[in-house]
Structure formats: structure tokens, C-alpha cells
Nucleic acid binder design. Structure first.
Length: 222
DNA sequence: ACCCAGGGTCATA
DNA sequence: TATGACCATGGG
């Protein structure tokens, strides 16, 4: 099974996902920070609170008090840390000329800039690069590692950069990488949510071996 | 009642 | 480099 075959199975089963759910690149970036180790449903509540407070802009987020901001984003968890991270990020965003100026940077430079922000690690930076700046960067998360190590395509123990290079190298010849990487990461997340609790068994499973493994794990048989 | 969610930072060895 | 502690709400 090759990475592109896994993708085709997932795509055939779930269809296009059309990520990222947001109305602007800036909103994508806020969401990327808010969703760190957090269910997306709770991020939606936080973003709705920001909209209700007319605080969905870098200026308003910086001008809002830490306490007020923390209260708005409370449903997304880690609200004190994330309040700090959002203001930190917004300061960086304005200092670098917002989306228009940032988007003129090449992908490697932009990635380094993003990683300099306190509160933005490799996965969050890659979410931003792929879904806000539409650069051909493959996002690695815990679901990706789990799925592909169970399919025995990667070890699951390698570092973030090594895992990312594996996918970008193996999909390097594909046309339209931005669209492919966009849908691929979304499909991996959707598949994980679909099978971990809701439907651990299904005979139409796009990667049936993985389904069986999850089922055994949940029952303590593996 | 327990487990985990679309992670990252910091202190320590 | 590599663990461990910490952050915290909400749904299954």
C-alpha cells in the first residue's frame, strides 16, 4: 500500500472535505492555535465568542485585555496560555505586514518565521502554511503517525521533520500538491474521528486493516 | 468516573 | 536528545 493508494481509499469513502473551516487566512491561523490538543467543536465556540465581541482581527485581539480574551476563548481549553499565544501571534502578524507581506516570502523563510513565534510549533506552523498560505506542506499529527505506523509504512517513532519528508517525498510527483495535501490531512483526521469511537467496525472501511486494529485495541485484545 | 481532543513550552538530566 | 509536568474545557 502506497501513500497515494491510502489517499484514494479515504477520498473515495469520505469525499472532499474542503478544509480549513474559516472565512479568512487570519481566521485559519487563529483556529490553528486554538485547536492545539483540543476538539474542533470547542474551538468553534471560542471563535464564535470572538466574533460576538467583534474581536476577530489582529488589532482588536491585541487591544483586548488578557482576561477578556481568556474569557472569550474559555471553551477551547488552556485559555490562559492560548490568550497569551493569540496576542503574541497577532503582534508578530502586524509586525510582519499581515497576510499580504507575509505571503510574499518563500515557503522555507515563512516556515522559519512562523516557528519563531512562541506558541507556534511545527504542526501549528504547517497548518498555517498549508491552509492559510496554500503552500505544499504536509501536516503531520498524531493521527497520521498512528495510521501509517499501523499500516507499517512508517515506524511512528521518527521525528516531525522526518515524517513530513516521508510524505512530501513520496507524493512529490503528484500534480496539485496543495489540494492533495489539504484533502489528505483532512481525510486522515475525519477517518480517525469516524473510527475511534463512533464506528470501530465497518466492512466498507477505507483501510480495513487499520479498522480491525483499532477495534482490537479498544477491546484490549491487541 | 475515565479518556481524549486537529500541541507546545519549559525545566531537568 | 529525551523524558516529564503543565496547561483546562467539554463530549464520548
Amino acid at each position: 500500500m502506497t501513500p497515494i493508494q491510502v489517499y484514494e481509499h479515504l477520498y473515495d469513502y469520505y469525499g472532499p472535505q474542503g478544509w480549513w473551516p474559516a472565512n479568512s487566512p487570519f481566521e485559519v491561523m487563529l483556529g490553528a492555535i486554538l485547536t492545539q490538543n483540543t476538539a474542533w467543536i470547542n474551538v468553534e465556540k471560542a471563535i464564535n465568542n470572538l466574533k460576538g465581541g467583534n474581536a476577530l482581527s489582529p488589532d482588536s485581539i491585541i487591544n483586548t485585555s488578557h482576561e477578556q480574551l481568556a474569557e472569550w476563548i474559555r471553551p477551547s481549553g488552556y485559555f490562559n496560555i492560548k490568550s497569551e499565544r493569540l496576542q503574541n501571534f497577532c503582534r508578530w502578524y502586524l509586525d510582519h505586514g499581515k497576510f499580504e507581506a507575509l505571503n510574499k516570502l518563500d515557503t522555507v523563510s515563512l516556515r522559519h518565521r512562523l516557528l519563531e513565534i512562541n506558541g507556534v510549533g511545527p504542526e501549528t506552523a504547517d497548518d498555517m502554511l498549508l491552509y492559510a498560505f496554500e503552500r505544499p506542506i504536509f501536516v503531520i499529527d498524531a493521527y497520521t503517525r498512528r495510521l501509517f505506523s499501523r499500516l507499517q509504512l512508517i515506524s511512528g517513532e521518527e521525528g516531525y521533520e522526518s515524517a513530513r519528508q516521508y510524505f512530501e517525498h513520496n507524493l512529490s510527483k503528484h500534480e496539485g500538491k496543495v489540494t492533495l495535501f489539504n484533502e489528505y490531512h483532512a481525510l486522515i483526521v475525519v477517518h480517525a474521528k469516524d473510527h475511534c469511537r463512533k464506528r470501530p467496525i465497518c466492512n466498507k472501511c477505507p483501510v480495513y486493516d487499520e479498522c480491525k486494529y483499532v477495534t482490537k485495541m479498544n477491546r484490549g485484545l491487541a
